Amino acid sequence: MTTRWLTPEEQRAWRAYIAAASLVEDALDRQLQQEAGMPHLYYSILATLSEAPERRLRMTDLAERLKITRSRLTYGVTRLEKDGLVRREDCRWDRRGSVAALTDEGYRVLERAAPGHVETVRSLLFDRLNPEQVRQLEEIFTAIGAGFQGEGPHATAEDVPWRRRSGKPCP
Rank of each mutant, 00 (worst) to 15 (best):
R70V: 10
R70E: 04
S71N: 11
R72S: 12
R72G: 09
L73C: 00
L73Y: 05
L73G: 00
T74W: 11
T74Y: 05
T74F: 07
T74S: 12
G76S: 10
G76W: 08
V77G: 03
V77W: 12
T78I: 13
T78K: 01
R79F: 14
L80I: 05
L80P: 08
L80A: 13
E81S: 13
E81I: 01
E81H: 03
E81T: 12
K82W: 01
K82D: 15
K82M: 14
K82L: 14
K82N: 14
D83M: 15
D83W: 07
D83Q: 15
D83A: 15
D83L: 15
G84T: 01
L85N: 00
L85M: 08
L85C: 06
V86I: 11
V86P: 11
R87G: 07
R87Q: 14
R87S: 11
R88L: 14
R88Y: 02
E89G: 07
E89P: 10
D90N: 13
D90V: 13
D90S: 12
D90Q: 10
D90H: 12
R92M: 00
R92W: 05
R92F: 07
R92G: 03
R92Q: 12
W93D: 14
W93L: 01
D94G: 02
D94Q: 08
R95V: 12
R95I: 13
R95Y: 06
R95K: 02
R96D: 15
R96A: 15
R96H: 15
R96T: 14
G97H: 11
G97P: 05
S98M: 09
S98E: 06
S98T: 08
S98K: 11
V99W: 03
V99L: 01
A100E: 12
A100R: 09
A101W: 07
A101G: 03
L102H: 04
L102D: 03
L102K: 09
L102P: 04
T103W: 09
T103N: 01
D104K: 02
D104P: 11
D104W: 04
D104N: 06
D104I: 04
E105M: 13
G106N: 01
Y107N: 01
Y107F: 00
Y107C: 00
Y107W: 08
Y107H: 12
Y107I: 03
Y107M: 07
R108Y: 02
V109I: 03
V109F: 08
V109M: 07
L110F: 07
L110V: 07
L110T: 06
L110I: 03
E111H: 00
E111D: 05
E111M: 05
R112D: 15
A113D: 08
A114P: 02
P115W: 10
P115D: 04
P115L: 05
G116W: 06
H117Y: 02
H117N: 13
H117R: 04
V118H: 15
V118W: 10
V118R: 10
V118S: 14
V118C: 07
V118L: 11
E119D: 09
T120F: 05
T120G: 13
T120A: 10
V121F: 02
V121I: 03
V121C: 12
R122K: 09
S123E: 10
S123L: 12
S123K: 13
S123T: 01
S123M: 04
L124M: 02
L124I: 06
L124V: 01
L124D: 05
L125Y: 05
L125P: 03
F126K: 09
F126A: 04
F126D: 09
F126Q: 06
D127F: 01
D127E: 15
